[in-house]
Each structure stands twice: as C-alpha cells, then as structure tokens.
Design a protein around this nucleic acid. Structure first.
Lengths: 215, 215
DNA sequence: GGGATGCTTGGACAACATGTACGATCGGCG
DNA sequence: CGCCGATCGTACATGTTGTCCAAGCATCCC
C-alpha cells in the first residue's frame, strides 16, 4: 500500500518541520535567558515546547540531532555570507573586504545562540562535532582556494601557504565571532570587524604584487 | 589549639598536591584514549585513581574545580611562553616571531589534553569559563600593550586598533592551537606555525614605519 | 457510520551520574 | 595505649537519559 506509506511519511515530514520550527523558538528563548545548550535538559525543552518526552524521541535521536536540525538554516546562511569574502574580485578594496566580513558578522549576530550551541555541543557530541568541523573545514577550503587564485592573479601576497593560512584565518573568524561579537553592540561590532578586516587585508592583500605601488 | 589546626591544614595541603598530581596523570591517560573531559565521570576518575568517592569530594568541589587545579601549571607555562612573543624587541625579525610562536605551540602540544578540557568544560561550567576567559583576556591585554608600544616606537603598523587586533589574534591563536596543532606531527606543526607567523608578521610588522624600506 | 492506521501521549522503567551524609576503620603520634 | 585526622564503603535523594508500551485520538477510506 504505497499510498499509505507516502502519506504517512509526508505527514511525518511536515510534522517534523513544524516541531523543528517550534523547538527553534523554544531553544533560542531558553538560551537567551543565559543558560548554555549543554545545561538544557530534554526535560526542560519538551516542557517549554509542550510536547511529550515520547514525541521528542520520535523525531530526534537525542539533543544533538535536534541541534543539527536547528542549525541547518543558520549554517547555510553563514556559509553563504562567507562566500561574499572569498568571491571578491582581485580588484577589491579594503572597504570591500570589510563589508563582506561585516555581512558575516551580522548574520552571525542574528543567530549567535544557535552557533554557540554548536560550539558547546561539539565538545561532547560526536555527530555535532563532525558536522561542525565539516562546516569550518569547508569554509577553510573555500578561503584557501581564494588565496591560491589570488596568488595566481597577483592580488594576494605570494609565499603564503594557502591551506594553512586559510585554516588560521578561518578559525580566527569562527572564534572571534563567537567570543567577540556574540553580545557586542553595533558600534563595538563595527570597530571589531574593522580590526578583523585590517588583519585580513594586511595578511593577504597589502603586500600583493598587483598592489605593490599603493602602500 | 593552633598547632593542631596548622598541622592539619598543612597536611591537607600536601595531600591535596599529591592527589592533584596523581589526578593529572589519570586524566591525561583517560583523555589520551579519545574521550573528552565532559564524558569523563567522577566515577571513572576515582576508579582509575584508586581513591574513594568521598575522598574526591573532600578535595574538590566538583569536576570543574579539579580541572582548574590540574590546569594551573599548564596555564602558567602557556602564559609564560606567550610573553616571549609580545616582549620581542622592536628590531625583531620574522624568524624571531616564528620562533616565539613555535615556543607556545610546543608548550601547547605537550599539554593539549588539559587545554582541550578547559575549552570543553568552559561550555557548561561557570567557574571554568570565568577562569578560561580571564587567561585569554590577560593574554590579549599583553598583546595589546605590545602593539601599542610597537606603534610608538614605529615597529608596528600604525592605524591598527591595539585592543581589538590583539583580541582577534589571541583568539586565532587559542583556536588554532586547539584545532590545528593538538594532534599535529612535528612537520605539520612547523608549516602551520610558519603560516601563523606570516599572518602575524604581515598584520603587525610588515608595513611598519621602521620597516618601510624592507619589503 | 464503522474500522483501520498512524500519531501523540503519559507513565513506568532501567541505567547511570552527582553530591551529601555517616559510621567504621586505618595509621601515626604523643 | 588512646586520640585524632584521613580514608573508605555504603547508602541515599535527586535528576537525567533513552526505551517501551498501552491507551486515546484524529483522519481517511470503505
């Protein structure tokens, strides 16, 4: 009876999405009260969401699975915003770099709670850790490519090790967003992002062949 | 009866140190088997250490307190090694910077397990988080001072925001050590530290007034 | 309307971890 | 020998996790 199966699964799917959406609100709410994701028990979550323990475990293997579902969207947005940086053309100015980084910072600040939760849970949940690493590794790879391409076109300093430079800068960004911008005001964000842009600019672009004259 | 009190407390102190030392071995041992500090239960710890549950709680409030005791030494060493960087003279070369960073990396690699545990526990233990932040903030302050002084003497690029640039670079270092060097080989460490040195060099020193000629 | 199907639910459960309490025991020291 | 501090085993109250099951409920089809 395929129709039954189809219906069932599509309903499950829809219901799951609804629950994920609801849980997103609940989790962000609870996190905004100052607790960390680690400290949130399934008990509390279902209590606030108004669903039963049993139902929770129908849709999520555990807290980690829930978090990954919640984070999907956020991660997509962050990765997307990060591309704005490493897809900058060779002629980009420092202001362009800063604007791109600002974009990522703004996306991050909107969803800082969820990202922080990913970081939290990475320390004890295998699945989350793997997923988190994959995201960052992917970002680093994108940046590494940007560096390599830039070196070819002369817009990036020669001699830098693309992969490893990208790794450091990527982790700097990850950690900086988390630690420096999660609770920053707009004004503070502006200053902080400017500093980040200075680092990136000086590291990658300032001494590049195609810019040798301007200093 | 002051003598009694004195004796008791000094004995407690000595015994505590012995236990801390023993626990350090146990924790590093268990962590080297691939588990995270978060996953280590007090149960396991006392089991491997051969002391009783009761005794454990005589000396440590909880797992977090234990960790802070274990980390004291490591943190001191790391902070000390970091000073080698920001106490570099204005005439330092890129090789000097790389050597200083290498020093920190080596210290870190020796005690990666404990540092990782601090990061882990920071996500759910208030005391650990506070202590951890204090260490990093302190490091950032030291680096900020180095930048400010360097700007005065002309050995560091003008126009950088000392505080915020230091924050980004400090978190970059923290996260990079943790993520890139914790399990790296010697060869990989060399390459990675070189990339880190390039970033630091280009950011802070390459375009500095006192170096304007050399490029 | 009647009945099958699948989803949600509450509650019970085993397993395990935490931090506390207490009485028994061991060992050194006067 | 006897005191005293430290350790120990054990028990306990509490809280969390993930599983399981039987009962209730809504929906859709016949």
């Amino acid at each position: 009876m395929p129709s039954v199966t189809r219906k069932s699964s599509s309903s499950r799917q829809a219901r799951r999405e609804a629950i994920v959406k609801q849980m997103l609100g609940v989790v962000e709410e609870l996190l905004s009260e100052g607790e960390s994701f680690t400290e949130l028990s399934v008990e509390r979550l279902i209590g606030s969401a108004g669903i039963s323990r049993s139902t929770f475990y129908v849709y999520f293997e555990d807290k980690g699975t829930l978090l990954l579902a919640l984070a999907e969207d956020v991660v997509q947005q962050l990765v997307g915003s990060a591309q704005a940086w490493w897809e900058l053309p060779p002629t980009a100015t420092k202001a362009d770099v800063e604007a791109a980084l600002r974009g990522t910072a703004d996306v991050f600040r909107e969803h800082a709670a969820i990202w922080s939760s990913l970081v939290d849970a990475s320390s004890y949940d295998q699945k989350v850790r793997a997923s988190f690493r994959a995201v960052v590794d992917n970002a680093a790879a994108g940046l590494a490519k940007h560096i390599k391409d830039g070196q070819k076109s002369g817009s990036v300093v020669a001699g830098l090790d693309p992969k490893r430079t990208a790794e450091w800068l990527t982790w700097m960004t990850e950690r900086g967003l988390y630690q420096l911008l999660a609770e920053a005001t707009d004004a503070e964000t502006t200053k902080s992002v400017r500093a980040q842009a200075d680092i990136v600019w000086n590291t990658l672009y300032a001494g590049a062949p195609s810019r040798a004259a301007a200093a």
